[in-house]
Nucleic acid binder design. Structure first.
Ligand SMILES: [Zn+2]
Ligand SMILES: [Zn+2]
Ligand SMILES: [Zn+2]
Ligand SMILES: [Zn+2]
Ligand SMILES: [Zn+2]
Ligand SMILES: [Zn+2]
Ligand SMILES: [Zn+2]
Ligand SMILES: [Zn+2]
Ligand SMILES: [Zn+2]
Ligand SMILES: [Zn+2]
Ligand SMILES: [Zn+2]
Ligand SMILES: [Zn+2]
Ligand SMILES: [Zn+2]
Ligand SMILES: [Zn+2]
Ligand SMILES: [Zn+2]
Ligand SMILES: [Zn+2]
Lengths: 298, 298
DNA sequence: CTTTCTCTGTTTTGTC
DNA sequence: GGACAAAACAGAGAAA
DNA sequence: CTTTCTCTGTTTTGTC
DNA sequence: GGACAAAACAGAGAAA
């Protein structure tokens, strides 16, 4: 059920209501060492299953109120894990329709270069030092003429001004927070004991995230998912695309250069691909060339 | 480090390399009951910390290859949890700039109605029965003239044709899969034992997701996040927006109706809000009216 | 460091 | 062989 | 049920 | 009081 009620009843009749208590409490290694300062960790659970409902949506402020009290949900806790598997989808082994038309001519040559300065809407936080090792430098320019046709999604096609990035979403996990992680090689810290405990279980403590990872150190990389910064820039002249992940930029550059670095080595097949993902899918669907081989770099 | 190497060495010298083994193995309740059929669960871990690098991006198929062998990563496992907390960001208690100008006049009245039929790109799966209780019905039409100005993001502004939705991403967790969940009230099933085990730990087994939830039953709701269907339609005449979540549609309707159902009850303050989120933020930043109260419904 | 709006995990409400 | 970090992969998934 | 392209958790590679 | 589901909230976050 809900976290409030379970917290309330937690001391006495544990694991009622549902099965969450069961899983939440004796969950992971050293999860409730209870080193916390004050606000002694309360476990949280919740109940759900809404889906749709059909809301008649009667227009124009109708009438009745519904007000109730607010309770600041002070602590949550005992979240669990989140991992990454699922080979469940398999493409039907049928469609090998190979187009691969005019390669270079085909490479899209338009891109919206309009860059605007919208402001961050972000939230200053407890901590202040982003520790991401964003060591990527900006490669030198390339040719100029070609431009990439932008699809629907923006989110990387513009750049911010320097000033605007000021207090960008340093949500959590920075240095200088009160609860540092003592795991060797990790220097992240957190503003609450609960977040630290989740972190030590390889779980991202960000609200609504709670992903579990295999590698503790990856949490430092994962943090960038929750930060607005896109420090990597496309170096193509006139292209304003920005990125959080080096690999995304690496592959993006190919839409400018037209490079198709992946070539299927299967005897009959000689298809080439611009993106690893497409090459991977080709191999998965066709079973071709289980000795993957890059044509060249970039 | 990586999953391969850890799987390889798993039998003999456990928990070497890193700390994942430590956390992954004795992780959760009844996690390795080892009821699995074949392919005895191998634990996976991985090492990380890339960030950026500066790739010179030399254009046009340069030269050297890099090929190696492929190994189908057959199983992963022992993921852990993922929870939802983080009250880390706090707005600076300064900016209460209240605009709230011409209310109804201000409501946006444009929206791109162009609907196109793009095809799903999806992947048929092991299972075949989506069990989401998408019981929402489509309310009857409203007025017609007004339209909503669309922002950058699409993803809901168009509708698919009936045929196209055919084998839409039933990735996992359906009925009729080989490994059914026996938790009471849950009828999800999975194509692998590993996925089922994750699921029973309240973890979404979808690759790259691995979120941990408080309520086991919520997993059935969460599934829709990984499915392409957007079964809820905006009922406004001419609006093609579609939704996965009832609440999203409920609030969306307000951009058509202009309703601002939330009113701050703080003595001096009389601001109104169209979206709960904005009302919540107002209360959080100002501390106003901890007795929240809706003006009316919709 | 803004406003508008969508998404979604958890909380609250409503009904039995 | 073992770290460890950088690079790359292999999907998922959005858009058209 | 396609193609193009981005995102990101894990795997692979390269260097010491 | 206790299910349980439906509705709503409270953020996160994208876009402008
Ligand atoms: Zn529950
Ligand atoms: Zn740590
Ligand atoms: Zn996260
Ligand atoms: Zn570019
Ligand atoms: Zn691009
Ligand atoms: Zn091939
Ligand atoms: Zn590692
Ligand atoms: Zn279940
Ligand atoms: Zn998921
Ligand atoms: Zn609409
Ligand atoms: Zn809308
Ligand atoms: Zn107020
Ligand atoms: Zn070696
Ligand atoms: Zn896909
Ligand atoms: Zn009661
Ligand atoms: Zn925000």
């Amino acid at each position: 059920m809900n976290m409030k009620s379970s917290s309330k009843k937690r001391k006495d009749d544990k694991r009622k209501d549902h099965f969450h208590e069961l899983y939440d409490e004796d969950t992971d290694v050293d999860f409730w060492p209870n080193t916390s300062s004050r606000d002694d960790a309360t476990l949280g659970n919740s109940d759900n299953t809404p889906e749709q409902t059909l809301d008649p949506v009667e227009v124009k402020s109708g009438g009745k109120l519904q007000g109730k009290k607010i309770k600041s949900s002070k602590f949550k806790s005992s979240a669990d894990l989140s991992n990454g598997d699922s080979k469940l989808q398999k493409m039907s082994k049928k469609s090998n329709s190979k187009k691969q038309k005019n390669d270079k001519i085909n490479r899209q040559l338009r891109e919206d270069q309009n860059e605007e300065n919208y402001m961050d809407h972000l939230l200053d936080v407890e901590v202040d030092e982003a520790t991401l090792n964003n060591g990527d430098k900006i490669p030198e320019d390339k040719v100029d003429d070609t431009k990439v046709k932008s699809r629907g999604k923006l989110q990387s096609g513009k750049r911010k001004t320097s000033k605007q990035q000021a207090s960008d979403g340093l949500h959590t996990g920075n240095k200088a927070a009160k609860f540092p992680c003592d795991i060797e090689g990790c220097d992240m810290s957190f503003s609450t004991q609960q977040d630290l405990l989740l972190h030590k279980r390889d779980i991202c403590p960000v609200k609504g995230c709670k992903k579990k990872f295999f590698c503790h150190k990856y949490l430092l990389q994962h943090r960038k998912v929750h930060i607005d910064e896109r420090p990597l820039k496309c170096t193509w002249k006139g292209c304003k695309k920005t990125f959080k992940w080096p690999w995304a930029r690496t592959e993006h550059m190919r839409v400018h250069t037209g490079v198709r670095p992946y070539e299927c080595k299967e005897p009959g097949c000689s298809q080439t691909f611009r993106f690893v993902s497409d090459f991977s899918r080709h191999k998965r669907k066709t079973g071709h060339s289980c000795d993957k081989r890059r044509k060249n770099s970039t």
